[in-house]
Design a protein around this nucleic acid. Sequence first.
DNA 1: TTGGCTTCCGTAAACGTTTACGATACTATG
DNA 2: CATAGTATCGTAAACGTTTACGGAAGCCAA
Lengths: 342, 342
Amino acid sequence: MTGIRELARHLDISIGTVSRALNGKPDVNEETRRRVLEAAEKLGYVANQSGRALRKGSTGVIGFMMQTGREITGQGDTFFMSVFDGVQTVLARHRLDLVALLCSSEEDPQAYLRRVVARGFADGIILSATRRHDERFEFLARSNIPFIALGRSLTDVGQSWFDLDFEGMADTAIDRLVSHGHRHIAVTRPHDDMNLGYVFVDRCRQALARHGLTLDEAHVFRSTPNEAGGYQIARDLIACKKRPTAVVLVNEAIAIGLYRGLNEAGVKPGRDIAVIGRQSPHSQFLSPRLTCFSLALRELGSSLAESLLATMPAYSKHYPDAAARRLWPMDLVPGESDIFNL
Amino acid sequence: MTGIRELARHLDISIGTVSRALNGKPDVNEETRRRVLEAAEKLGYVANQSGRALRKGSTGVIGFMMQTGREITGQGDTFFMSVFDGVQTVLARHRLDLVALLCSSEEDPQAYLRRVVARGFADGIILSATRRHDERFEFLARSNIPFIALGRSLTDVGQSWFDLDFEGMADTAIDRLVSHGHRHIAVTRPHDDMNLGYVFVDRCRQALARHGLTLDEAHVFRSTPNEAGGYQIARDLIACKKRPTAVVLVNEAIAIGLYRGLNEAGVKPGRDIAVIGRQSPHSQFLSPRLTCFSLALRELGSSLAESLLATMPAYSKHYPDAAARRLWPMDLVPGESDIFNL
DNA sequence: TTGGCTTCCGTAAACGTTTACGATACTATG
DNA sequence: CATAGTATCGTAAACGTTTACGGAAGCCAA
């Protein structure tokens, strides 16, 4: 089964008609269309990707760019796998496929993206792990290829983006802790390249100010967004000369390291210090159960996909009111790590 | 910059020569080659993927198939991201790209694979999350497309595969526990579809037999390979009428759930029960530190890629002695979860 | 000078598909 | 019956690249 030609010969009709029948074009008799679809199904014919893409100028593929070998997102695997699943439910409606574009740790992300785009690999691109200043935005905008970012950036080329509502998270967490009597609250943030840190810490500062409190700069803890980073934060926290009574974690993966570090020092979360973090596959299995912010990952993925499609001329009419820029809400899931009054 | 034609016109030579120059073909003057490469670099020309693939019949892409929205592997994100990175170091030597083929939870994996293959998307495919009986092998073998599996299966079509050395892990773990005086050892396994469970449990049984011990069938615990599964195992374990004094976990993600379940019942790992598991990003942050089996993920990825390339005619000459079927060794990393003598 | 060899390059076909265009047959309308 | 309109289909060009083939030029030996 080399191609459409064989299928046409087998049916004794022209390849043009076969193509039209398969692609749902109007100029074809319904009876012939049925025959074509039937034969295609029986013979397992699927249009060759390269030929189709070459002619149409589009590939039917949406790429989700990630970087391998690095831990820069601080998200667990379920995070992306769930988001992917949500993205796919929307893409499937338009016969679009999702692939993860994997940029090796040995290759410059910018160069990788240039290569992918120039080769015409994908019709649209979703960026993740966005940086505070991210030249990928400028490049994609110049290249005129539809894209959306999962994560905000200072770089603004009018692109669409989605991000978690860290502002809402900051407000809710701070209000909650203050209402329980906490006055010295620490916050965490990833390294300086990530925009997230600035957004979150600034909002926490504002939220504290509303209560007449100030954020001690010594209580802002930087770390890598992984388990080891959490452990480091615990040690820094304990070494503080004026130890805070609560801490809010902005990354997923760091809670378990923090727990370990605290426990080693005999400081018990939920009793000696209040901890609020982010939901992850294991946050509910920590002892004490982590009070955390959860979010609907699949739905985020679907919404993300809709916003991307809204920027693509071929599909935008289906999503007239997809928000171009959106903060995805998170819900507080009460656990046992922050329940104590001072 | 629409294509090779413009580049050729810009250099005032024919497109044939440009193509030959770019592809390192011999029939081209070194000076012109230099000029071509220089101009391509300057103008940011990259060969169009579709055109090239259409003509050459190969895409230069290797696909790693994964299923989204599900938790069937029990591996964390660092597992795959590290393996990917290793794969890419090898693929980069041949200008091959790695992408993750994401099969939605709403689509049949077999149908997805059929679609991907028929469309000519990838030159080679790496399968993961292999099942005990996996029809994808038969399909790929019939389709005559190079592939390799990360994980064994009962389905044997002469394919290459890689897998973790669960046999070695079973031997080491059992010997170690027995030498510490344990006589009643429990083991875990994922659900029945996964071949891993059979392999591991069988080998544990044999290892115990060498010490004159038997594996109590009531001490074989099935679970989903995620955190919740670990929690379930803990509860089952405690409900056992004859409680084992040690347990060996075959999946990555379940340790934390197990710890939680044990702690809730006042059973302390490393004191009341010995626990040996698999290394994960958080295994060293558990209290007590998990005694676990680790493996070199990047190196596994590289080796996996080499074995795949060895099955591809265009590249096999570079990897004459890449093992077709290989068990990847794991090392015991001593922690505190199993150190106690009975 | 002639012939053969080598080096380098241009020409054009081919890959599998989509689609603009035109052709045919049939229907309806006057 | 003539004409216009419609439904359906076939033809062929085009997408961007690679590569088989042949040709031109230069060189060297006989």
